[in-house]
Simulated assay, not measured.
Amino acid sequence: MTTSDPATPGTDPDDAHRAADRPGTDRSKADRRPRRRVRLVAAVAAAAVVLAFLPFVWTVASTAGHRHTADTVPDRPVALVLGAGVRQDGQPTLLLARRLDTAADLYFDDRVSVILVTGDNSVEHYNETDTMADYLVAAGVPADRIVGDYAGFSTWESCVRAREVFGVEAATVVTQDFHLPRAVRLCRSAGIDAVGVADSSLRERTFATVYGWLREVPAAVAAAGTVLLRPDPTFLGDDETGVQDALADDTADTGGRQD
């Protein structure tokens, strides 16, 4: 009976373990698979982050030349103030109040002639548009220079309705700085020669500012889809002559001069 020689290669148990650890063996391949999966997941995650930020970068870059300060903004016939909520006591939220203050300043500085306030009045006991108009009147803006859009349920709908329903061809959009790139982009995509002025008075409120900018990242993704698909507003309806009538009155009041 022949016995195996302990010195014969491949018969030593230690040799077997060493062979299993050599590159090219099944065990080595198995050890590399988890690392490959981790790298793949990391690459996919990085690509997703980049893709998520691209629409945000697009809104910022494509409107860079159309966003101004209140001192440098070109004159436009209409200021478009986008709604931002009403408190339970019937007063505008802080964000909305600051937008209205900015629009009033533009009016008093003769940068705009008419203010179109656009908001939500879809349910009883909630009238964002009238709240905005009342605030402006209390600030000294003549009531006949304020026009209300009661079906501005979103930024896109406000822009489309301003162009299609109210006949606005050129406007200064007024909102917060984090919202302004998307608002200007959507209004320009809706056919309005839009520039924008931001209220920046809340920059010291860190939470509101950080939250606002973070919120714009997914909102910009939705905006890109909106520009591509161009959905109709919830309500379009008949033409409204309020803005044109107010502009005509302003021209008459200034002796035929129209800014």
Rank of each mutant, 00 (worst) to 15 (best):
A219E: 04
T59M: 13
Q88D: 14
F108T: 14
V78S: 10
L116R: 08
P6G: 12
A79V: 11
T8N: 09
V78W: 05
A162G: 06
T131Y: 13
R87I: 08
T175D: 01
V221Q: 11
R98C: 00
R36I: 03
G167A: 08
N121S: 08
A30L: 13
V38R: 14
S62G: 00
H66L: 02
R67G: 02
G10K: 11
A162E: 07
G90M: 11
L214K: 04
V168S: 11
A162C: 11
L180K: 01
G242M: 04
L96D: 10
R22S: 13
F108K: 15
A20D: 14
T155Y: 05
G119S: 04
R98I: 01
V147M: 09
S158D: 00
P233F: 04
R188S: 01
A64C: 00
P74S: 09
V221P: 09
T102A: 07
A223E: 05
V81Q: 04
V174Q: 00
A104Y: 03
D250S: 12
A48K: 08
F56E: 02
E204I: 04
T226M: 06
A219R: 02
L214M: 13
P231E: 02
L186N: 10
V50Y: 02
H68M: 05
G10W: 09
K29Y: 01
A61K: 04
L95G: 02
R188L: 02
Q88Y: 00
Q244Y: 00
I115V: 05
L94R: 15
L214E: 02
L94V: 12
D130S: 12
L136S: 10
V141H: 03
A104T: 01
V174R: 04
H66K: 03
T59A: 07
D193M: 05
V227G: 02
A139L: 14
R27T: 11
A20Q: 15
Y150D: 03
G140V: 12
G65F: 05
V86F: 13
W213S: 06
R215T: 07
L40Y: 03
I115G: 00
L202F: 02
F166A: 02
A52W: 01
A133H: 00
V117Y: 07
V78R: 10
V49Q: 08
A16D: 12
C159F: 10
D245P: 01
A219N: 04
T251Y: 00
A70E: 09
D15G: 14
T131Q: 08
L51E: 08
C187V: 12
L229I: 15
E128Q: 11
S158W: 11
A103E: 08
Y135F: 14
M1K: 14
A198L: 07
L180T: 02
D238R: 14
T175Q: 01
A219V: 01
A138V: 12
D15E: 15
T69I: 03
G83N: 07
A248Y: 01
G83H: 09
V210I: 15
S200H: 09
A7P: 01
E157H: 05
F166I: 10
V173P: 04
G255V: 10
G90Y: 12
G152D: 08
V81M: 12
R39H: 11
R39W: 13
P6T: 00
A171W: 11
A219S: 15
D26N: 03
D120I: 10
L82T: 00
W58Q: 05
A84E: 04
V117N: 08
L96C: 13
R185W: 06
A70Q: 04
P6L: 11
D238Q: 12
G256K: 09
A84Y: 05
R182C: 05
V78I: 15
